[in-house]
Simulated scan of single mutants.
Amino acid sequence: MYQVNNRINITSPEHLAMLRERFGKAPESMKQVPGFLSFRLLEAEDGSHVIAETVFASKEAFRAWVESDHFKRAHGGRGGDASRPDLASYYVRVK
Rank of each mutant, 00 (worst) to 15 (best):
P13W: 00
L19P: 02
R78K: 14
S58Y: 15
R40D: 11
E45K: 04
H70W: 14
V55N: 10
K25C: 04
E43P: 03
E67F: 02
R7V: 04
E43H: 03
I8D: 05
G77N: 04
H49F: 07
S58A: 13
Y90N: 10
H15N: 00
R63Q: 15
S38E: 05
N5W: 04
H15C: 01
R40T: 14
D46S: 01
E43T: 02
I10R: 01
A17F: 01
A26H: 04
A26D: 14
A64Y: 10
A52M: 14
H70C: 06
L37Y: 10
Y91R: 11
E67H: 10
R63H: 15
R78Y: 12
A82C: 05
F56V: 08
S89E: 13
L42T: 06
E28A: 09
L41F: 11
R93I: 09
V4C: 09
N6A: 04
H15Q: 01
L41W: 12
N6T: 14
I51D: 14
D69V: 13
H15W: 00
Y2D: 09
D69N: 06
G80H: 08
E14D: 04
F71I: 03
S48M: 03
M18I: 00
E21C: 00
R20L: 01
D69S: 10
H70Q: 07
G79Y: 05
P13T: 03
A57R: 15
G24I: 01
N6I: 09
T11W: 06
F62W: 15
M30W: 08
L41V: 12
H49G: 07
A52P: 07
V92W: 10
G47I: 06
L41K: 05
I10P: 07
S48E: 05
S68V: 08
N9F: 06
R93M: 11
R84H: 03
A44G: 03
S83A: 02
A52V: 07
F36D: 04
N5H: 03
E21G: 04
S38F: 05
S38V: 12
A26K: 02
A26F: 10
L41N: 13
P27K: 02
D69C: 12
S68T: 09
A61S: 14
E14G: 04
Y91F: 15
S29W: 13
E60H: 15
H70F: 11
G80C: 07
D81L: 07
